[in-house]
Nucleic acid binder design. Structure first.
Lengths: 253, 253
DNA sequence: CGAAATAGCGTAGCTCATACGCAATTACGG
DNA sequence: CCGTAATTGCGTATGAGCTACGCTATTTCG
């Protein structure tokens, strides 16, 4: 029997309960929940061991009985913050399934904007993460893609969704800190600084008024943008499928 | 005359030189350069004001004469780390131009892996960033996309490239810290934990051996993956172009 | 009922960012 | 040529953060 890495075991809640000694008043799940609550309310930067402990009415150091380090806590948060993925309809095609899941993921990330700021410590290993992974693979199961390609498409999709959300989150934060540097003020600054000679294409876009919005961070606008970029990516996947469809069963790697 | 935000002015090196008083021994550019050198050599986490000051043979607090805060230093780094974008060939179509630029950006990010960990404080404002922006827009100038759509495509592309590189960088860091949890060991752990009943698609992929590599972080492999995902995205853009306008699908400039 | 195991937590050490104030240096006005 | 104003260099100090260590309190097993 192979040994399992300690962090993965913790993620799955696989530790034997202690039989002797003082009873724990908390669990790793409690700590994780409290940390998520803090992050939701005040951002990831507010998540300090002291802050989380205060939330639980415990002292800072007590948390270290449940969590090896702050990094480990972040890993736990990265799994616990996810909901169950949406169920795929039995009769859907791959594209509607992937779209459903991508929008569902966007929804999760909107409720936990700090998620995309978490450092990625490794490939997905927690139960919720793997469930999403499985569901995404299920949506692609009937395509002519081989297993390796399916994983590639899923990773590309996740990269895209995370990147999109990260950009959005950080722009929103920048907007909060510094509203003047957005929207029209930004466009005005660009006009002062962009030389039409050396950057003609950018100058043309600026002059066309693309940046003359009251704010660049506009929620429904960005949603439409997200959907459009997602569709472009999926168009590409579709084209790849079509090319692939002729010669089924090819196995790379 | 509109005023320009202070940080943008600094990015462009627009501050009047002081006429009286002790001569500065450094410039903001010197500080930025030293910070980049530290980040390249030891990662972004090693970039502390004290560390950068030591690199320059100055005291920590001296740096604050050139840089308002550490955040401002990071903003300066986000512009100074970029090279000039590659020149577009006069006879290329949009797709080869975009591909050239995307690979060029990948190259920059490979030499400065910390880049994608920088917090994004706002839309691009520095000279180098805008130059890349301009070049990307230039590559799309002859397509039937309107200005807003061009910006959308460019943003989507940047999101994708950054996200890809971020994933890669963080996995590499995780691999350094914790090599056992990658590759075959990861696959073995998955086999223990993934229930074929509740996650059949993932189980199938695991059993197919997709994760049975000596390491999941394999440079040429990830390059191919990047290129494949990029092509998928560009296929999508191409499909969008076709829908959008007739002809012009790949003309010279 | 002791011994062993385990939780709670106070203390303290280390690293950071950075506010503040003073001394050193330089240019300009007279 | 000197005084004054401006500006840099930097020591000190504050406060926040992570976490190693070790002591004490609590609980269970033999």
């Amino acid at each position: 029997m192979t040994e399992m890495p300690a962090d993965i075991a913790l993620l799955w809640g696989l530790r034997e309960a202690p039989r002797r000694g003082r009873r724990p008043t908390l669990t790793a799940a409690d700590v994780t929940r409290a940390a998520i609550a803090v992050a939701d309310a005040e951002g990831l930067a507010a998540v300090s061991m002291a802050r989380v402990a205060a939330e639980l009415g415990n002292s800072t150091m007590a948390l270290y009985r449940y969590v090896k380090s702050k990094d480990e806590l972040l890993t736990l948060m990265s799994d616990a913050a996810l909901d169950d993925p949406p169920e795929l309809p039995a009769d859907g095609d791959w594209r509607s399934g992937i779209t459903l899941l991508a929008l569902g993921m966007l929804d999760v990330l909107r409720r936990h904007p700090w998620y995309v700021q978490l450092p990625v410590s490794g490939p997905p290993a927690g139960p919720r993460n793997l469930q999403w992974f499985d569901r995404l693979l299920t949506a692609l199961a009937d395509t002519p893609l081989d297993e390796g390609e399916q994983v590639g498409v899923v990773m590309g999709l996740l990269t895209f969704v995370h990147g999109e959300m990260r950009l959005r989150t950080e722009l929103a934060a920048g907007y909060r800190d510094n509203p003047e540097s957005f929207g029209r003020a930004y466009a005005a600054a660009l006009r002062q600084v962009v030389d039409p000679r050396s950057m003609p294409a950018l100058r043309r876009v600026v002059d066309a008024g693309v940046f003359d919005l009251d704010t660049l961070y506009d929620e429904p606008d960005l949603d439409a943008e997200f959907k459009a970029t997602l569709d472009r990516y999926l168009d590409g996947v579709a084209a790849h499928l079509e090319r692939r469809g002729q010669s089924m069963g090819g196995n790379s790697r």
